[in-house]
Design a protein around this nucleic acid. Structure first.
Length: 419
DNA sequence: TCTGGGGTCCTAGGACCC
DNA sequence: TCTGGGGTCCTAGGACCC
């Protein structure tokens, strides 16, 4: 009988965003609640309470659709900092059960519980203790799936919701998966589901009619993984089941969808400036430097393009990120066509090589990075509007900055200086 | 029903080099 | 000069997840 001898827990918080919001406003409890924005806004549902789900509301659905399906729902804006705060509490509870905890996202985690029997008892008892500890220490409910692979554990936690526990007994994985819809396999989305249906594959058991070779030819590398998943294996087979602390980020991005499509170049470039500042700040906080900057541009009709540029040296400076995306924007925006969304994305993180190149230039760069970090700190302590950078100081563009009462910026980019 | 924002991973093609 | 093959880097797009 194949399989690892590991015991993996997948812990998934129940309606996480909604539950956190309820802690801050108990009057929400028991009601249909939609987190993500107001009922008439351009946006989608971030999370819905179980009461709202009864009316067909689910995440990623347009807010306006949710409002039609469930008119009595209470619409609440999201609060990312609250979710991060509670995510840390969750993480703390989990690490008291196993040293091997991998946060897979803000509200779910894998635990390697192998060999914890003497401390926590058999899997079901350990899961029960964990749920109780979670409730008493974070005030939140969670569901737990238990299996010999991450995949099986995750499928089980989904089936256990809400506030349940499901254990896939070793050796029974394939039988447990067989009757499930292929869509229940993590990684099978709308498109893959459709392609599988065309082959007559609707349930996981149908996958067994096809050889690994056939699935590989048809779906590439993914097909092979899929064949394994039907047996309950992780992507690299039974021996790939590792739970590891989270690896470093590979990209950082910020994007903005206008409440009304934009058509003015100055307006869009000021948005790109703001997004560049947000990205630069994240880089400085993480102590990272990026070599590739990318612009994302979505037109009114939803057609979307991305344009990237890789530089010779990595940066964390707002001005260099902005100079890159502004140039990409000017070269690629079809002038006059209304724009719905703009995004700034950086990747290819590398250590800067200060000594290697032009010493003068890089000495100046390093001083600028320190100066900007200092600005970040001041803004943290005294508010966003406490520091503004004078014209010309930010690099090869001039700006005049005004702040609205909300603290939002309206930056006008004027005549660029010579480049 | 009129479609967010933050990520990860994969594929495919072209440039370039040996 | 009629024309291989492998490797790496880069770009663009897309599927998928929460």
């Amino acid at each position: 009988m194949p399989g690892s001898d590991k015991t993996i827990f997948h812990v998934d918080m129940d309606a996480f965003f909604v539950s956190v919001e309820e802690l801050f406003d108990p009057s929400l409890k028991g009601n249909a609640v939609v987190v993500g924005g107001q009922r008439d806004e351009r946006g989608v549902v971030c999370a819905a309470s179980y009461e709202a789900r009864k009316f067909g509301v689910h995440s990623a659905m347009p807010l306006r659709t949710a409002a039609k399906l469930c008119p009595h729902a209470i619409f609440v804006d999201g609060h990312p900092s609250r979710y991060r705060e509670y995510s840390e509490k969750v993480h703390k509870v989990l690490t008291s059960f196993s040293p091997l905890v991998e946060m897979a996202s803000i509200d779910e985690a894998y635990l390697d519980m192998t060999g914890t029997g003497r401390l926590h008892g058999p899997p079901l008892r350990a899961a029960d203790s964990l749920q109780r500890a979670m409730k008493s220490e974070s005030n939140l409910n969670c569901s737990i799936g238990i299996g010999r692979s991450r995949l099986v554990a995750k499928v089980c936690s989904a089936k256990a919701k809400p506030h349940g526990v499901l254990w896939a007994v070793p050796g029974q994985e394939a039988n447990l998966l067989a009757p499930l819809d292929v869509r229940d396999i993590p990684g099978v989305g709308k498109v893959t589901e459709h392609e599988l249906h065309e082959l007559g594959i609707n349930r996981v058991r149908d996958l067994r009619r096809f050889s690994d070779e056939f699935l590989k030819d048809r779906f590439g590398k993914w097909g092979l993984a899929l064949a394994g998943k039907a047996r309950g294996e992780d992507a690299g087979g039974w021996f790939d089941t590792e739970v590891a602390a989270h690896s470093d980020a590979k990209s950082i991005s910020h994007e903005h969808t206008y409440s009304e499509d934009a058509t003015r170049q100055e307006q869009m470039e000021s948005t790109l400036m703001r997004l560049s500042e947000m990205v630069g700040r994240r880089l400085r906080e993480a102590g990272m430097h990026a070599r590739t900057v990318q612009l994302k541009l979505r037109y009114k009709d939803f057609t979307t393009i991305t344009r990237a540029r890789t530089m010779t040296h990595p940066t964390q400076l707002d001005s260099e990120i902005f100079a890159g995306v502004r140039d990409l924007f000017r070269k690629n925006w079809r002038a006059g066509v209304a724009v719905r969304l703009l995004g700034v994305h950086v990747s290819s993180f590398e250590e800067p090589q200060y000594q290697q190149r032009d010493l003068l230039d890089d000495g100046q760069r390093e001083r600028w990075e320190h100066a900007l970090s200092a600005v970040d700190n001041l803004r943290d302590r005294f508010g966003e509007s406490s520091v503004s950078l004078a014209s010309g100081l930010c690099g090869n563009f001039r700006e005049r900055t005004q702040r609205t009462p909300l603290g939002c910026r309206d930056t006008q980019t004027r005549k660029p200086s010579s480049e």
